[in-house]
Amino acid sequence: MWSHLDADPDDEYLPGVLAAALIEAGDGDGVRRLADRLTAAGRPADAAWTRARWAEAEGRWSDVAEECASIIAADPTRINTRRLWARAAAELGDHAAVQRLYEEILRHALPDADATPEEAHRTVQGSDLWGLVVAATANRDWAAVRAAAGRLGMEFDTAEGPIDEEWQVVTVRAVTAGGSHVDLPAIRTGPATARIVPVTGDDVPVNHGDTVVFEPSLLEPRPESEEELSNWRPLFGMVTLLDPAGFTTYWIDGARPGQEAWITLRDTLREQGYGVWVYSGDGYRVTDPAGGEPLPGVYAAVGVPPRSSAAEADSLLARLTAAWPHPLAWVDLAKAAGQDPAPHLATVERYGL
């Protein structure tokens, strides 16, 4: 390809093919050589596009945005350049820039405001409208969300304002503080929003009741069989936290009471606005202080709502579990409530928690 380019320096398409080959090969020196050559040949936009694609391959999103901006400044009609810039802005968390770029894309690519959803999908060639929905949601620009979603054929219960409905159970994938990912059940509340269901630990960036923005493209394919589909929840990647619910997590641990007692505890807590999520499985066992067989155990997270204090939560749990044959332990909650944690530490010791 280099030799062909030497023979025909004005070839319009070969530099793009060569750039793709160089990027795939990880040949940064070759990419820079090609970009310099294009600049010297009076093709600065092609040079900037080559550098932008290389920066994309290396994950240098600020450089991608800078190169794309230079191209758009010279030629405001570029569509694919804006798409790449929008991706870079999304990676940088600049949702305002993402929304602006997708709005510009739609003005250039979809001038007809009366286009049908089918025409919209065909004209914008993919996810431009969804990109606008996600960015506008993150920016709380609900009018823009509704307008873009309307072009996609979506309808809502209300005509204006925030979209907060109950659609379906989905799974939202979030990144933990340690860099791993965690998949969380959630209730989809709009085109690109969901409310988190579980009560989570400190390493998870969202908690029970939080409303998050997600990218509405499946991370796993839709099952083909009806049997798999019946238990399937769409998996989406979290983009950002939109509305934190303000829950504080405390852990309870100990011997599990009978099913009726546990359901009463769970339902009462939920009626009071608390969140409850059990993490232990059926095989979890704790020590029987009387020396008998190990007892069924329960390890769960309780989400205390912002309107309740740790002291109120401690008092409520103590009242609800007072008649249980075995006590639960909630050491951290007792400390936060200003109570003596010694009884809870003794429970931890006696039951091997």
Rank of each mutant, 00 (worst) to 15 (best):
A48D: 15
W49S: 11
T50L: 09
T50W: 00
T50V: 11
W54S: 08
E56R: 13
A57S: 15
A57G: 11
A57T: 11
E58A: 13
G59M: 11
G59Y: 11
R60P: 12
R60D: 15
W61E: 13
D63E: 14
D63Y: 08
V64L: 08
V64Y: 07
V64W: 02
A65T: 12
A65G: 05
E66F: 03
E66N: 03
E67V: 06
C68L: 07
A69G: 15
S70N: 03
S70K: 13
I71P: 03
I72K: 00
A73F: 06
A73N: 05
A73C: 11
A73M: 06
A74M: 07
A74E: 05
A74I: 01
P76D: 09
P76W: 10
P76N: 02
T77R: 00
T77L: 01
T81K: 02
L84E: 08
L84Y: 11
R87Q: 14
A90Q: 15
E91L: 08
E91A: 15
E91Y: 14
L92M: 15
G93K: 04
D94M: 06
H95C: 05
H95W: 15
A96P: 01
A96G: 14
A97E: 05
V98T: 06
V98P: 06
R100H: 13
Y102E: 13
Y102F: 12
E103H: 12
E103N: 14
E104I: 02
R107W: 01
L110Q: 12
L110V: 05
L110H: 03
L110M: 09
P111H: 03
D112P: 01
A113G: 02
A113S: 12
D114N: 03
D114R: 04
D114M: 05
A115Y: 02
T116L: 00
P117H: 04
P117E: 00
E119G: 04
E119K: 03
H121S: 10
R122T: 08
R122E: 07
Q125T: 09
Q125E: 13
G126P: 02
S127W: 14
D128N: 06
L129Y: 00
L129T: 06
L129D: 01
W130C: 08
W130H: 12
G131R: 07
V134N: 13
V134W: 09
A135N: 05
A135M: 02
A136E: 09
T137H: 10
T137A: 11
T137C: 11
A138T: 12
R140A: 07
R140C: 13
W142Q: 00
A143T: 10
A143C: 10
A143D: 14
A143E: 12
V145M: 03
V145G: 05
R146K: 02
A147Q: 10
A148R: 00
A148T: 08
